[in-house]
């Protein structure tokens, strides 16, 4: 029963979806890397919080702050990752600057000018509080104020009327926790954005390679040799591809809060090329040339554009599920087939 044509056809189809999804993943990763998608999302997220129209654009300043500036590969490159501790240090420093007194004294005799800086406080937290005092009312001030209050404890727990005193350590920790929670939301925005890119790439790959699922099912089901070859490839892929597929998917979906290894764009191109070669080696009934030749052979048969459109739409839709999903399905089907065989 398990060596049925239907199961083998399903395995073949899922194998094709898996290979194409991997291709889509690689192209998406290359596209995101070229567009600095992670870096741009991080910039957008920081702008949302730190572009304070009533005071300064602290986000723009954060990008020139050594905390972030030194992390850039070159001046045109956006860093794709900013840790909570770096964020807290940067924000405390930049807001604290508002409380510092920077003056320039000129020596009457020589005319030389020297900078005199009187910090707004003795430590980063005191400077921050001095800077906050000088800030005009705005979202950022409210946020920082609430975190200061959150990190305050009563001077005398027995007598609340004696007031509260904020703890620098607790404030910093609260700021970092807030940032981590915010970045979790940003991860969600980023993943949604990646999904849209994956969808567009799936359509492009489907159209460029002309992958018509209906025709594929028909061709594979009617051709036992092709089917057997595909099942063999599927079994091989399950053995070796698990780790690779997972790594690619992880890199693609990592958000600006997660540090990911820097993947060379040339390596990505090589990976795409290898993927295309692998698909080509299967000699599948896909592609516009194949379509042209095939239709020329069977001149009498009318081209069913409706069926082709439906078949391609099904492929594009299937590819949006992503390589990990199709790999899981493939693994289950191959295991089912092996279990059936051994029993």
């Amino acid at each position: 029963m398990f060596e049925s044509a239907i199961l083998d056809t399903a395995i073949s189809l899922v194998l094709i979806y898996f290979l194409l999804s991997t291709l889509v993943t690689s192209i998406t990763e290359l596209w995101n890397s070229w567009r600095q998608a992670r870096g741009r999302m991080l910039k957008f997220a920081l702008d949302e919080v730190l572009n304070d129209r009533h005071n300064r654009n602290f986000s723009e300043l954060l990008y020139t702050h050594p905390q972030l500036d030194l992390m850039k590969e070159h001046s045109g490159k956006l860093p794709s990752y900013l840790g909570a501790s770096q964020f807290a240090t940067g924000v405390m420093d930049l807001v604290g600057e508002l409380g510092d007194e920077v003056t320039f004294e000129q020596d009457q005799a020589t005319g030389a000018v020297r900078e005199v800086m009187v910090p707004g406080g003795n430590n980063a937290f005191e400077r921050l509080r001095a800077g906050m005092k000088k800030m005009k009312y705005g979202d950022l001030k409210v946020l920082l104020q609430s975190l200061v209050e959150q990190s305050s404890a009563p001077v005398d727990p027995g007598d609340l009327s004696k007031g509260f005193v904020p703890s620098p350590e607790k404030f910093r920790s609260a700021l970092e926790t807030w940032y981590d929670a915010y970045m979790e939301r940003v991860s969600g925005w980023y993943k949604r954005k990646v999904r849209v890119t994956v969808f567009v790439m799936s359509i492009i790959v489907t159209v460029v390679l002309r992958v018509d699922s209906i025709e594929l099912v028909r061709a594979v089901h009617n051709d036992p040799v092709l089917r057997a070859a595909l099942v063999k490839v599927a079994e091989r892929e399950v053995d070796k591809a698990e780790e690779k597929a997972m790594k690619a998917a992880r890199a693609n979906e990592a958000s600006p809060t997660e540090a990911v290894p820097n993947v060379n764009q040339w390596d990505q191109l090589d990976s795409i090329r290898a993927q295309v070669d692998k698909i080509r080696a299967l000699d599948l009934p896909i592609g516009w040339r194949w379509f042209k030749e095939e239709k020329a052979e069977v001149k009498c048969e009318k081209i069913n554009w409706g069926s082709m459109f439906l078949g391609m739409a099904a492929t594009a839709f299937a590819l949006t599920f992503g390589a990990p999903f199709w790999f899981d399905v493939l693994k289950k089907l191959v295991n089912m087939r092996s279990a059936g065989k051994s029993s």
């Binding site: 654009n57 723009e60 020297r114 900078e115």
Partner: peptide, 21 residues
């Protein structure tokens, strides 16, 4: 502009601090 005028002033101050003379 990404950096409004207040931000520009802060960036100019940074240059002034590096080259006060």
């Amino acid at each position: 502009a990404p950096a409004d005028f207040n931000t520009q002033l802060r960036l100019v101050q940074e240059v002034k601090r590096k080259y006060p003379d």
